[in-house]
């Protein structure tokens, strides 16, 4: 399929698309997000990296309001996230999310997984949705599996379907929360390849991952989180070769040893 219609939003390339200002979130007494300021521009690929428990998943989940937050603001394309209800559902449709555990709908076929959103949320005609879904499944390389059920696919294939399911909503930005960490090593690359392809096509992406190869190849920026704060925000090259903070040095030391 052509590259058109991948990054559809009112925002021009390079304009701020996702903007977080002073976002704070607690889980009980635990301060998981501390005054987060982050701007992701149209077409940019931001890789989020950091130790376990530093708040990376929570950051992603707050951006599409799977989690609430207490103070600060999050805007997408200049629009503040609505509180709840229909407006929020519509806005969520605009923010794709890919989870570590794929989360495909197990009682639906691969094709139905992808057409569900376009038909139910975007009110697309079933035949148009089917055409779109088929195209997207082709593009992520699982076109021939369309009539199978998720349990019949490998992890790597399921994750690629999950990406297609998100893409079918024509999101303006996509969030990936450790999309390859539940995969067997031999399947990691097939998923990363799809993501690189997407990045090249101009999709705005926020990707939580420890895959440095991906960060170097596709990332425009690396954001390093530690204990709920953004500690560094730099280009991948600079971050990996010349980390500024001790925490980042320490963390890189740990992941580079294996």
């Amino acid at each position: 399929m052509t590259e058109t219609g991948i990054a559809e939003s009112g925002t021009a390339p390079g304009e701020p698309l996702v903007v977080l200002k002073g976002v704070n979130k607690h889980f009980g007494d635990l301060h998981v997000l501390k005054d987060i300021d982050l701007t992701v521009h149209q077409g940019e690929v931001v890789v989020v990296i950091g130790p376990s428990g530093s708040g990376k998943s929570t950051l992603c989940r707050t951006i599409n309001r799977l989690e609430t937050f207490e103070s600060g603001s999050i805007t997408i394309g200049g629009v503040e996230l609505p509180e709840e209800g229909k407006a929020l559902a519509q806005l969520r449709a605009d923010v794709g999310m890919v989870f570590q555990s794929f989360n495909l709908f197990h009682h639906k076929t691969i094709l139905e997984n992808v057409t569900m959103g376009p038909v139910k949320v975007r009110k697309m005609k079933p035949e148009d949705a089917k055409k779109l879904a088929t195209e997207l499944l082709e593009r992520v390389g699982v076109g021939h599996q369309a009539n199978k059920y998720p349990a019949q696919l490998s992890g790597g294939q399921q994750q690629r379907v999950a990406i297609a399911r998100s893409l079918a909503m024509r999101p303006s930005v996509m969030l990936f929360d450790e999309p390859t960490s539940a995969l067997d090593p031999e399947m990691v690359n097939e998923v990363l390849d799809v993501m690189v392809q997407l990045a090249k096509a101009g999709m705005t992406m926020i990707v939580v991952t420890h895959e440095m190869g991906f960060a170097r190849k596709a990332g425009d920026r690396v954001v390093f989180m530690s204990e709920g704060s953004i500690v560094e925000d730099n280009t991948p090259e600079e971050f990996f070769t010349n980390p500024q903070s001790n925490r980042a040095k320490d963390f890189l030391g740990k992941i580079l040893t294996h």
């Binding site: 806005l91 969520r92 794709g96 555990s101 709908f105 569900m116 959103g117």
Partner: peptide, 21 residues
């Protein structure tokens, strides 16, 4: 699995659609 309801929410299904489908 809990993730399914979240995935449904994240593609924009409302609570009612999520329940039904």
């Amino acid at each position: 699995p809990v993730g399914q309801a979240e995935a449904a929410r994240s593609i924009g299904l409302t609570f009612g659609q999520n329940l039904r489908h």
